[in-house]
């Protein structure tokens, strides 16, 4: 099936079986292996990418359903010479050990900070209608779809908090 995707600003024509998930399309068909496959069932968040501005699990969606969509992967957020603020913060705060979940964590956190800017409440927000106070509990709740088997969570939260508060790292 022919599918047109814009990935990190560049147009790609994919011709793949309808079964191909967006994750497999990125990794196996388009050679973009920054996005990781963990559980392949939407439980771990390693495959998180941003589609049309929203973070999603790329393992739980078919590539052909995204014809014409704009996809941002970890490769589109920063480069080795020009890291994104969250990438810099994850390095500065030691927000990983093995690093396998990190692309998903950073894609997820990038979109999550936009959700906060848009005023979306979370399960731990005390008042659904008030401005969000960005506590560690808020960060943890909003990042619960990204698992880290190395349990670098305290440092991940620290990295995200630093960027959310506009701090330089």
């Amino acid at each position: 099936m022919q599918t047109k995707l814009t990935i990190n600003g560049k147009s790609h024509n994919l011709n793949a079986d309808t079964r191909t998930t967006l994750l497999d399309a990125l990794r196996n068909h388009l050679g973009m292996t920054g996005t990781k496959k963990g559980c392949d069932h939407g439980q771990c968040g390693a495959c998180t990418v941003i589609v049309n501005g929203r973070r999603i699990n790329s393992c739980l969606t078919l590539a052909c359903m995204h014809d014409g969509n704009e996809v941002t992967t970890i490769e589109g957020l920063g480069t080795v010479d020009d890291l994104s603020p969250l990438q810099r913060a994850f390095v500065a705060h030691d927000g990983f050990q093995c690093g396998y979940c990190t692309p998903g964590q950073i894609c997820s956190a990038t979109a999550m900070l936009e959700e906060i800017k848009a005023g979306w409440p979370s399960h731990v927000s005390a008042d659904l209608n008030a401005e969000i106070a960005l506590s560690d509990a808020e960060i943890a709740e909003r990042m619960s779809g990204n698992l880290c088997r190395c349990a670098a969570y305290p440092n991940i939260v620290e990295a995200i908090r630093t960027v959310a508060q506009g701090g330089r790292t």
Binding site: G42, G45, T48, R54, R55, I56, N57, L60, T61, S108, A111, M112, E115, A118, G119, W120, P121, S122, H123, S125, L128, N129, R142, M143, S144, G145, N146
Partner: peptide
């Protein structure tokens, strides 16, 4: 996140936010 839901049917916003993850709720 809808303003009216949060104000007038908060139980629905709470239930939705207690389910799944941010990524899954987007889809």
């Amino acid at each position: 996140a809808h303003r009216d839901v949060r104000r007038d049917w908060p139980v629905l916003a709470q239930a939705l936010l207690s389910g799944a993850s941010g990524q899954l709720r987007n889809k």
